[in-house]
């Protein structure tokens, strides 16, 4: 392990980084990988389903909106665990979002011809405790979200 990695993981926390091609077959891989990483917090099935769903939403958005389905794009996910809190970031270096307030509206989609439901951001906001988007036109979109995993506490307190 490099010195830098050792330093980062020196605290109580744990982390992982994942990078993959912007291909739709990686959506399932991404959500399963994050769920497997979070398993160490002993989440309930419902908590795992929530996490898988938000990862699926954000990764799908990178692929279809960030990169317009171009498989040459790269999606980066990080997950960090500090005590019972999991922080997930999901990022693309694609198109970016012009009007973030509009994009976050429930049922709003810029691609109705693809039968999108426009519910991705609403789901991320509802399923996570914290959710933020930073996006710049032409340089990409970065999502950061947090969730407290309650199950462990409930079990041991």
């Amino acid at each position: 392990m490099s010195e830098k990695l050792e330093q980062i993981s020196d605290h109580d926390g744990n982390f992982m980084t994942l990078q993959f091609a912007s291909r739709s077959e990686n959506e399932a891989f991404a959500r399963v990988a994050v769920a497997a990483f979070v398993t160490q917090l002993d989440p309930t099935m419902d908590e795992l389903t929530d996490l898988k769903t938000v990862v699926s939403e954000a990764v799908t958005n990178c692929i279809i909106h960030g990169y317009d389905n171009d498989p040459n794009g790269v999606v980066t996910i990080t997950a960090r665990i500090e005590e019972e809190i999991v922080t997930i970031t999901i990022e693309d270096k694609g198109n970016g979002i012009e009007d973030l307030e509009l994009a976050k509206q429930p049922l709003y989609t810029s691609k109705p011809e693809l039968e999108r439901s426009g519910m991705g951001f609403t789901i991320m906001e509802n399923f996570m405790d914290e959710f933020e988007v930073v996006s710049n036109l032409g340089s990409g979109t970065h999502i950061r979200m947090k969730k407290r995993i309650e199950s462990k506490k409930a079990l041991y307190n």
């Binding site: 959500r31 389903t49 898988k52 769903t53 699926s56 939403e57 799908t60 693809l114 039968e115 999108r116 439901s117 426009g118 519910m119 991705g120 789901i123």
Partner: peptide
């Protein structure tokens, strides 16, 4: 498993 793409279909 289902996400918002499923809602769309």
């Amino acid at each position: 498993f289902m996400d918002s793409s499923g809602l769309g279909v």
